[in-house]
Each structure stands twice: as structure tokens, then as C-alpha cells.
Simulated scan of single mutants.
Amino acid sequence: MTSDQHTPGTSNAEAPAAAGEDLAALLERLLSQAEGKTQKDLATESGVTYQTLNAWMNRTRGTSRIDSDRLRAMVEVFRKWGVQTTPREFFNAVGRPAPGPSDAEREARLLKLYRQLPEDRQRLLVEDAEIMNRILSAS
């Protein structure tokens, strides 16, 4: 898929990663669109060590367990550089379902409910959320 082709009914910014595109291929494609930017620049600006990013690019380190915040950080760096991409592309590239959109109102409501719980229930809620996240990451 070229940069000016896209899936019908989507904008280029929403276009899915190329079929079968893994993280290394996605990063290579996006870096080629970021004029003058390097792997080292991406690593520095997204908070990933260069060694880790390079291992992902060379497919010598697994990518299925990359922290969601790291994936989102790379998306934001590319966007800052003027490269169109989405979190969904990154999650697809590492073989995980993309988390749903988060809105401030929903997060505020969840935080309000959490703060109303007794401390022991707060701990249980956090444990439940961690378990749900591990289950989703494993599927």
C-alpha cells in the first residue's frame, strides 16, 4: 500500500497497517516517511533505549509484550514529526487488540468511583484490571 492509497472509507490517518506488517516493518516504513529522523531519534523521543528499539527493528527481541504506553509514545513521536499513523497500526503490528479510545469523562468517572472504594477494594480493583490486561495481552 503506497502512502496515497488507503482502504476505502478510511482516511490515510486511519488506514490499517499493511497486511502482515510486523513492528519492524511498520517502524521501517514510518521512519522512511520521517525525513532526517533515525532510529536513535525515535528511541530518544519515545523513551525507549536505542538497544531495545534496534532489537525490535532487527527482530531479535519479541514485541508482543511491549508496554502500551511505549507503543503510544512512538505513535505520538511520529505524529509530531508529521507522519500519519495510529495506535491501532502499532497494536496490530505487535499482534494485540488496540485498546478502545479513552475519553476524559470516562476516566474521571472511573477515578471518582475508585476513590470512593475502601482501600482493600481499591487494591482488588487494580488487581482485577491487571489480570484483564494480562489476559488480553496473551490472546
Results as ranks from 00 to 15, higher is better:
2 T>A: 03
3 S>P: 00
6 H>Y: 08
7 T>F: 09
7 T>Q: 13
9 G>M: 06
9 G>W: 02
10 T>H: 14
10 T>P: 03
11 S>R: 11
11 S>A: 10
13 A>Q: 13
15 A>N: 15
19 A>I: 01
22 D>V: 11
22 D>Y: 02
23 L>Q: 09
25 A>C: 07
26 L>C: 04
28 E>D: 12
31 L>S: 07
32 S>Y: 07
32 S>N: 12
32 S>K: 07
33 Q>K: 14
34 A>F: 10
35 E>W: 08
36 G>P: 03
36 G>E: 10
38 T>D: 10
40 K>L: 05
44 T>R: 08
45 E>S: 15
47 G>I: 07
52 T>G: 05
52 T>W: 02
56 W>L: 09
57 M>F: 01
58 N>L: 06
59 R>A: 03
64 S>K: 06
70 R>H: 10
73 A>T: 02
73 A>Y: 08
73 A>D: 11
74 M>G: 00
76 E>Y: 04
77 V>K: 03
78 F>P: 01
79 R>V: 07
82 G>R: 05
87 P>F: 07
88 R>A: 13
89 E>M: 15
89 E>P: 09
89 E>Q: 15
92 N>K: 14
93 A>S: 10
93 A>Q: 07
95 G>P: 02
97 P>R: 01
99 P>D: 01
102 S>F: 15
103 D>C: 12
104 A>H: 00
104 A>Y: 00
106 R>D: 15
106 R>S: 12
106 R>G: 11
107 E>I: 15
108 A>M: 08
109 R>Y: 12
111 L>C: 04
111 L>A: 11
112 K>Y: 09
112 K>G: 15
113 L>R: 14
114 Y>R: 09
114 Y>I: 10
115 R>H: 13
123 R>V: 11
125 L>E: 03
128 D>M: 05
128 D>Y: 05
128 D>I: 11
130 E>Y: 00
133 N>H: 04
135 I>G: 04
137 S>H: 07
139 S>E: 00
139 S>F: 05
